[in-house]
Nucleic acid binder design. Structure first.
Lengths: 266, 266
DNA sequence: CGGCACGTTGAAGTGACTCAATTCGCGTGG
DNA sequence: CCACGCGAATTGAGTCACTTCAACGTGCCG
């Protein structure tokens, strides 16, 4: 948990955090000043590293700087069920700020880097900067909306639909976080992991991927997702991005309504 | 949205809200005083009434006083996917405080009554009483933990396990909210609705219920769930209540650690 | 008494699972 | 440079849990 002291490096990091919050919330100059006082540590992760475990009581929350992070339950039979994926700009673990014990684990799905923000600093920040507090709260609500969608996806869609839906969600989120390159974004999951995410066997995942590839909708190769035909993909998935609440969600106390950001599609 | 003016009635209502928050969070005398200033409206609901709809932008949040409330997505094909169930003492809709547009709907599953707390009052309260703010935030995090578990339940369990798990969760939550009577609690769902909750057909639900009934684990009759053999039920469900975080979760700024409440089992 | 919603049952169909073998991609060491 | 090993992807075949379809039973209310 090496604390990062380099002046420039640390302010880059805080910029990244501020930018992330400003995607959905409006921060005042005072809020941004309060953010400056954070002193997050950073940590590099290799693919597969579990850095928060079910049952633990972390004393810091995580912000993803680079790479992809997965949350998962470990079932009594030892199987893994992925719950959500997180990319650079996400806070995958704000819940540990207010719930003592982790009910799931977090691991890097890729080589990456995270920032660790001590809970005491976050709690101080929340008192000092109420707009940051609501922005972080909102962040946890956005996560919850994604969880709810996963319930529906896993409960009501066929195998191909589920895979297509996962692709739509990841690609849309990547674009919203400025991480997509044209029709491509990073998705470093094995077919086994996709299965553990969607409640499918590896064989079924494989056939679903082939179906999407052969129909020219999208393909996954070498950890990169390429969207070949967005509207077809979206259609096969019954994807409706409203649950992602990508538009600016809310204003601070008494401020003119924000312009809705509508990121262009491929 | 009739505002409730009767003095005594209104203070009962605020007591209920305070009691609910104090199940997991510690409130100071000032916090409780701030709560007193809420002026919630109340609303009676008949079975089936949808009172918040997907796409709306509510200006009040809901607190359940009596009865059961269900959240659900309506899929593009018109099907319903239930996401969570809420009982007296729950806040099923805090997310609308910070996310403009509803991505799901809420309906009464039973005859019941709700309180409606205007968002402006909640936002004022949050500024004035920081412990209430974190308590409400924590409440939304508890909801999210239940959503996550639903992903795993629907993704990794068989039909009988899913129904058993639903029973375990509802019974445990009912006990935690002082709503169980011995080995019985209210669960006013039709078999169709259970199917829409767990991603199963009505036929499969029916057979799963029979299996649980015949093995003497639990039975559902006339909207009442009766647990016949808790340890067997729990076992069939692979239920582990840790995700419900029923123990007191956290203290206000610098206060001795709370005693963990461990509700006895049947 | 009739209608209706809900629950129950049987039987046939199917999407996804398991099992098992083969292939591919790629790094490693001889 | 090639043989080898290993994890991941692919393919085929048989099985099973759950679905769909369809009929019938039951309790309640007008």
């Amino acid at each position: 948990m090496a604390r990062q002291s380099s002046r420039t490096r640390s302010s880059d990091l805080i910029d990244a955090i501020a930018r992330s919050l400003k995607r959905h919330s409006i921060l005042s100059r005072q809020d941004e000043a309060a953010l400056e006082e954070l002193e997050p540590g950073t940590k590099s992760l290799t693919r597969g590293t579990e850095f928060v475990s079910q049952g633990e009581q972390p004393d810091a929350s995580v912000f993803v700087l680079r790479g992809m992070v997965g949350r998962y339950h470990t079932t009594q039979s030892g199987n893994r069920q992925y719950l959500s994926l997180h990319i650079a700009g996400d806070f995958p673990d704000l819940q540990s700020l207010f719930l003592q014990e982790m009910d799931h684990s977090l691991a890097a799905l890729d080589e990456g880097e995270i920032a660790l923000i001590p809970h005491e600093q976050l709690k101080a920040l929340i008192v000092k900067a109420p707009n940051v507090a609501t922005a972080l709260w909102r962040q946890t609500l956005l996560d919850a909306a994604i969880f709810r969608q996963a319930i529906t996806t896993n409960g009501a869609l066929t195998a191909v639909q589920r895979v297509a839906h996962l692709f739509c969600e990841q690609y849309t989120r990547a674009r919203a976080n400025d991480l997509a390159e044209g029709d491509t974004c990073s998705l470093p999951l094995s077919q086994t992991q996709i299965g553990q995410m969607l409640g499918l066997s590896i064989v079924t995942v494989n056939r679903a991927l082939q179906s999407l590839r052969k129909s020219g909708s999208a393909e996954l190769r070498g950890g990169k997702l390429t969207v070949r035909d967005w509207s077809r993909l979206q259609q096969r998935a019954s994807f409706d991005r409203c649950y992602l609440h990508i538009e600016l969600c809310a204003e601070p106390m008494a401020t003119p309504r924000g312009r809705a950001r509508t990121p262009k599609r491929s």
